[in-house]
Protein backbone atom coordinates (compact mmCIF):
# COMPACT_ATOMS: atom_id res chain seq x y z
CA UNK A 1 0.00 0.00 0.00
CA UNK A 2 2.59 2.51 1.14
CA UNK A 3 4.85 1.28 -1.61
CA UNK A 4 2.27 2.27 -4.21
CA UNK A 5 1.80 5.73 -2.72
CA UNK A 6 5.56 6.13 -2.61
CA UNK A 7 5.79 5.12 -6.27
CA UNK A 8 3.15 7.70 -7.14
CA UNK A 9 5.06 10.34 -5.24
CA UNK A 10 8.27 9.40 -7.02
CA UNK A 11 6.55 9.61 -10.42
CA UNK A 12 5.15 13.04 -9.55
CA UNK A 13 8.53 14.32 -8.37
CA UNK A 14 10.24 12.93 -11.47
CA UNK A 15 7.73 14.68 -13.72
CA UNK A 16 8.23 18.02 -11.99
CA UNK A 17 12.01 17.61 -11.90
CA UNK A 18 11.95 16.69 -15.60
CA UNK A 19 9.97 19.82 -16.49
CA UNK A 20 12.40 21.91 -14.48
CA UNK A 21 15.44 20.27 -16.07
CA UNK A 22 13.96 20.80 -19.55
CA UNK A 23 13.41 24.50 -18.81
CA UNK A 24 16.92 24.91 -17.41
CA UNK A 25 18.39 23.18 -20.47
CA UNK A 26 16.45 25.49 -22.80
CA UNK A 27 17.37 28.65 -20.93
CA UNK A 28 21.04 27.69 -20.72
CA UNK A 29 21.09 26.83 -24.42
CA UNK A 30 19.49 30.08 -25.49
CA UNK A 31 20.92 32.75 -23.22
CA UNK A 32 24.27 34.34 -23.74
CA UNK A 33 25.60 36.40 -26.58
CA UNK A 34 25.59 34.29 -29.76
CA UNK A 35 28.80 34.27 -31.74
CA UNK A 36 27.40 34.87 -35.22
CA UNK A 37 30.52 33.93 -37.14
CA UNK A 38 30.67 30.53 -35.46
CA UNK A 39 26.98 29.73 -35.01
CA UNK A 40 25.78 30.75 -38.49
CA UNK A 41 27.29 27.70 -40.29
CA UNK A 42 25.98 25.42 -37.53
CA UNK A 43 22.50 26.89 -37.93
CA UNK A 44 22.65 26.49 -41.71
CA UNK A 45 23.72 22.86 -41.34
CA UNK A 46 20.76 22.14 -39.07
CA UNK A 47 18.30 24.14 -41.19
CA UNK A 48 19.37 21.87 -44.02
CA UNK A 49 18.89 18.59 -42.16
CA UNK A 50 15.69 19.63 -40.35
CA UNK A 51 14.02 21.87 -42.89
CA UNK A 52 15.21 21.11 -46.40
CA UNK A 53 15.24 17.35 -45.95
CA UNK A 54 11.69 17.43 -44.50
CA UNK A 55 10.48 19.32 -47.56
CA UNK A 56 9.66 16.26 -49.66
CA UNK A 57 7.42 14.53 -47.11
CA UNK A 58 5.70 17.87 -46.36
CA UNK A 59 4.98 18.61 -50.01
CA UNK A 60 3.73 15.11 -50.80
CA UNK A 61 1.49 14.82 -47.75
CA UNK A 62 0.22 18.39 -48.26
CA UNK A 63 -0.73 17.59 -51.83
CA UNK A 64 -2.54 14.41 -50.89
CA UNK A 65 -4.33 15.90 -47.90
CA UNK A 66 -5.52 18.79 -50.08
CA UNK A 67 -6.70 16.34 -52.73
CA UNK A 68 -8.58 14.23 -50.18
CA UNK A 69 -10.19 17.38 -48.73
CA UNK A 70 -11.26 18.39 -52.21
CA UNK A 71 -12.74 14.97 -52.93
CA UNK A 72 -14.54 14.55 -49.61
CA UNK A 73 -15.72 18.15 -49.54
CA UNK A 74 -17.08 17.87 -53.05
CA UNK A 75 -19.14 14.72 -52.35
CA UNK A 76 -20.74 16.40 -49.34
CA UNK A 77 -21.20 19.90 -50.77
CA UNK A 78 -22.61 18.70 -54.09
CA UNK A 79 -25.68 17.36 -52.24
CA UNK A 80 -26.56 20.95 -51.35
CA UNK A 81 -25.59 22.37 -54.71
CA UNK A 82 -22.90 24.29 -52.83
CA UNK A 83 -19.85 22.69 -54.43
CA UNK A 84 -18.55 26.15 -55.32
CA UNK A 85 -17.82 26.69 -51.63
CA UNK A 86 -15.20 23.95 -51.95
CA UNK A 87 -12.37 26.49 -52.16
CA UNK A 88 -13.45 28.04 -48.90
CA UNK A 89 -13.66 24.68 -47.16
CA UNK A 90 -10.27 23.47 -48.37
CA UNK A 91 -8.47 26.75 -47.66
CA UNK A 92 -9.91 27.33 -44.21
CA UNK A 93 -9.38 23.79 -42.96
CA UNK A 94 -5.79 23.83 -44.22
CA UNK A 95 -4.84 27.29 -43.01
CA UNK A 96 -6.49 27.08 -39.60
CA UNK A 97 -5.96 23.47 -38.58
CA UNK A 98 -4.45 20.89 -40.87
CA UNK A 99 -1.49 22.93 -42.08
CA UNK A 100 0.06 23.66 -38.67
CA UNK A 101 -1.04 20.44 -36.95
CA UNK A 102 -0.13 17.87 -39.60
CA UNK A 103 3.16 19.65 -40.27
CA UNK A 104 3.96 19.51 -36.57
CA UNK A 105 3.08 15.80 -36.36
CA UNK A 106 5.15 14.98 -39.45
CA UNK A 107 7.98 17.15 -38.17
CA UNK A 108 7.93 15.33 -34.82
CA UNK A 109 8.12 12.00 -36.63
CA UNK A 110 10.62 12.97 -39.32
CA UNK A 111 12.94 15.48 -37.62
CA UNK A 112 12.13 15.28 -33.90
CA UNK A 113 12.94 11.59 -33.63
CA UNK A 114 16.17 12.14 -35.55
CA UNK A 115 17.16 14.96 -33.19
CA UNK A 116 16.56 12.79 -30.13
CA UNK A 117 18.44 9.83 -31.56
CA UNK A 118 21.37 12.00 -32.66
CA UNK A 119 21.81 13.75 -29.34
CA UNK A 120 21.14 10.54 -27.42
CA UNK A 121 23.87 8.77 -29.35
CA UNK A 122 26.22 11.71 -28.80
CA UNK A 123 25.57 11.28 -25.11
CA UNK A 124 25.96 7.47 -25.19
CA UNK A 125 29.27 7.71 -27.03
CA UNK A 126 30.33 10.47 -24.63
CA UNK A 127 30.80 13.05 -27.35
CA UNK A 128 28.96 15.57 -25.18
CA UNK A 129 31.38 14.92 -22.30
CA UNK A 130 34.34 15.26 -24.67
CA UNK A 131 33.02 18.64 -25.80
CA UNK A 132 32.87 19.72 -22.19
CA UNK A 133 36.43 18.46 -21.68
CA UNK A 134 37.48 20.77 -24.50
CA UNK A 135 35.73 23.66 -22.76
CA UNK A 136 33.01 23.78 -25.41
CA UNK A 137 29.55 24.11 -23.96
CA UNK A 138 27.51 21.31 -25.60
CA UNK A 139 24.30 23.22 -24.93
CA UNK A 140 25.55 26.17 -26.97
CA UNK A 141 27.36 24.12 -29.58
CA UNK A 142 24.91 21.21 -30.10
CA UNK A 143 21.51 22.06 -28.66
CA UNK A 144 21.12 25.74 -29.48
CA UNK A 145 21.55 25.60 -33.30
CA UNK A 146 19.22 22.61 -33.50
CA UNK A 147 16.59 24.44 -31.50
CA UNK A 148 16.69 27.57 -33.65
CA UNK A 149 16.75 25.55 -36.85
CA UNK A 150 13.58 23.70 -35.84
CA UNK A 151 12.00 26.92 -34.63
CA UNK A 152 12.58 28.65 -37.99
CA UNK A 153 11.94 25.64 -40.22
CA UNK A 154 8.53 24.52 -39.07
CA UNK A 155 6.55 27.72 -39.82
CA UNK A 156 8.10 27.73 -43.31
CA UNK A 157 7.17 24.07 -43.75
CA UNK A 158 3.61 24.71 -42.51
CA UNK A 159 3.19 27.58 -44.98
CA UNK A 160 4.41 25.41 -47.84
CA UNK A 161 2.11 22.61 -46.65
CA UNK A 162 -0.96 24.86 -46.74
CA UNK A 163 -0.09 26.32 -50.15
CA UNK A 164 0.51 22.89 -51.69
CA UNK A 165 -2.66 21.55 -50.04
CA UNK A 166 -4.78 24.32 -51.53
CA UNK A 167 -3.28 23.52 -54.91
CA UNK A 168 -4.16 19.84 -54.36
CA UNK A 169 -7.75 20.78 -53.56
CA UNK A 170 -7.80 22.93 -56.70
CA UNK A 171 -6.49 20.04 -58.81
CA UNK A 172 -9.20 17.65 -57.64
CA UNK A 173 -12.07 20.13 -57.30
CA UNK A 174 -11.59 22.24 -60.42
CA UNK A 175 -9.51 20.19 -62.84
CA UNK A 176 -11.08 16.81 -62.14
CA UNK A 177 -14.57 17.29 -60.66
CA UNK A 178 -15.43 20.45 -62.55
CA UNK A 179 -16.12 23.04 -59.84
CA UNK A 180 -16.17 26.48 -61.44
CA UNK A 181 -12.66 27.90 -61.58
CA UNK A 182 -13.49 31.52 -60.75
CA UNK A 183 -15.99 30.61 -58.04
CA UNK A 184 -13.45 28.31 -56.38
CA UNK A 185 -10.96 31.18 -55.97
CA UNK A 186 -13.46 34.00 -55.45
CA UNK A 187 -15.33 32.19 -52.68
CA UNK A 188 -11.97 31.34 -51.11
CA UNK A 189 -10.76 34.93 -51.38
CA UNK A 190 -13.93 36.37 -49.91
CA UNK A 191 -13.80 34.07 -46.89
CA UNK A 192 -10.08 33.79 -46.03
CA UNK A 193 -8.75 36.73 -44.07
CA UNK A 194 -5.09 37.59 -43.74
CA UNK A 195 -5.09 38.42 -40.04
CA UNK A 196 -7.77 36.01 -38.88
CA UNK A 197 -6.72 32.89 -40.76
CA UNK A 198 -3.21 33.10 -42.21
CA UNK A 199 -1.49 34.88 -39.32
CA UNK A 200 -3.29 32.77 -36.70
CA UNK A 201 -2.20 29.61 -38.51
CA UNK A 202 1.36 30.93 -38.56
CA UNK A 203 1.25 31.66 -34.82
CA UNK A 204 0.06 28.09 -34.24
CA UNK A 205 2.92 26.63 -36.19
CA UNK A 206 5.45 28.84 -34.35
CA UNK A 207 4.13 27.55 -31.00
CA UNK A 208 4.23 23.95 -32.25
CA UNK A 209 7.77 24.46 -33.56
CA UNK A 210 8.89 25.66 -30.13
CA UNK A 211 7.25 22.76 -28.30
CA UNK A 212 8.21 19.92 -30.65
CA UNK A 213 11.85 20.97 -30.97
CA UNK A 214 12.16 21.55 -27.25
CA UNK A 215 10.70 18.12 -26.38
CA UNK A 216 12.91 16.37 -28.94
CA UNK A 217 16.08 18.06 -27.68
CA UNK A 218 15.30 17.49 -24.01
CA UNK A 219 14.45 13.81 -24.52
CA UNK A 220 17.74 13.29 -26.34
CA UNK A 221 19.85 15.31 -23.91
CA UNK A 222 18.31 13.59 -20.91
CA UNK A 223 18.10 9.99 -22.16
CA UNK A 224 19.65 6.98 -20.48
CA UNK A 225 22.88 6.54 -22.49
CA UNK A 226 22.23 2.96 -23.59
CA UNK A 227 20.70 1.54 -26.76
CA UNK A 228 17.46 0.77 -24.91
CA UNK A 229 17.47 4.26 -23.43
CA UNK A 230 17.90 5.92 -26.84
CA UNK A 231 15.13 3.81 -28.35
CA UNK A 232 12.80 4.70 -25.46
CA UNK A 233 13.69 8.38 -25.70
CA UNK A 234 12.97 8.42 -29.45
CA UNK A 235 9.57 6.78 -28.98
CA UNK A 236 8.81 9.08 -26.10
CA UNK A 237 9.70 12.13 -28.24
CA UNK A 238 7.21 11.23 -30.94
CA UNK A 239 4.43 10.32 -28.47
CA UNK A 240 4.91 13.32 -26.15
CA UNK A 241 5.37 15.82 -28.97
CA UNK A 242 2.28 14.57 -30.85
CA UNK A 243 0.11 14.69 -27.74
CA UNK A 244 1.44 18.13 -26.81
CA UNK A 245 0.69 19.42 -30.33
CA UNK A 246 -2.86 18.07 -30.33
CA UNK A 247 -3.58 19.37 -26.83
CA UNK A 248 -2.07 22.80 -27.51
CA UNK A 249 -3.98 22.98 -30.78
CA UNK A 250 -7.26 22.75 -28.91
CA UNK A 251 -6.21 25.49 -26.48
CA UNK A 252 -4.96 27.77 -29.28
CA UNK A 253 -8.08 27.20 -31.37
CA UNK A 254 -10.26 28.05 -28.39
CA UNK A 255 -8.26 31.24 -27.83
CA UNK A 256 -8.15 32.31 -31.48
CA UNK A 257 -11.51 31.27 -32.92
CA UNK A 258 -13.56 30.49 -29.80
Amino acid sequence: MFDRIAALGKAALDTIAGAGAALIMLVRALIGRPNLRKSWPLLMQQMYSLGVLSLLIIIISGLFIGMVLGLQGFTILVDFGAEQSLGQMVALSLLRELGPVVTALLFAGRAGSALTAEIGLMKATEQLSSLEMMAVDPLRRVVSPRFWAGFYSMPILATIFSAVGIYGGYLVGVQWLGVDDGAFWSVMQSSVEWREDIINGLIKSIVFAFVVTWIALYKGYNCTPTSVGISRATTSTVVTASLAVLGLDFVLTALMFG
Partner: peptide, 28 residues
Protein backbone atom coordinates in the same frame (compact mmCIF):
# COMPACT_ATOMS: atom_id res chain seq x y z
CA UNK B 1 24.06 23.71 -47.82
CA UNK B 2 23.58 27.47 -47.84
CA UNK B 3 22.13 27.24 -51.33
CA UNK B 4 19.63 24.57 -50.31
CA UNK B 5 18.58 26.51 -47.21
CA UNK B 6 18.24 29.67 -49.30
CA UNK B 7 15.98 27.87 -51.77
CA UNK B 8 13.98 26.52 -48.83
CA UNK B 9 13.43 30.01 -47.43
CA UNK B 10 12.52 31.37 -50.88
CA UNK B 11 10.03 28.53 -51.30
CA UNK B 12 8.49 29.47 -47.96
CA UNK B 13 8.18 33.12 -49.00
CA UNK B 14 6.61 32.08 -52.31
CA UNK B 15 4.11 29.89 -50.47
CA UNK B 16 3.29 32.84 -48.22
CA UNK B 17 2.80 35.08 -51.25
CA UNK B 18 0.56 32.47 -52.85
CA UNK B 19 -1.54 32.27 -49.70
CA UNK B 20 -1.66 36.03 -49.30
CA UNK B 21 -2.39 36.97 -52.87
CA UNK B 22 -4.09 33.86 -54.35
CA UNK B 23 -5.67 36.44 -56.62
CA UNK B 24 -3.79 34.96 -59.55
CA UNK B 25 -6.13 35.34 -62.50
CA UNK B 26 -7.02 31.75 -63.17
CA UNK B 27 -10.21 32.24 -65.13
CA UNK B 28 -9.81 30.95 -68.66
Amino acid sequence: THLAVGMFVILGVLAMLFLGLRAANTST
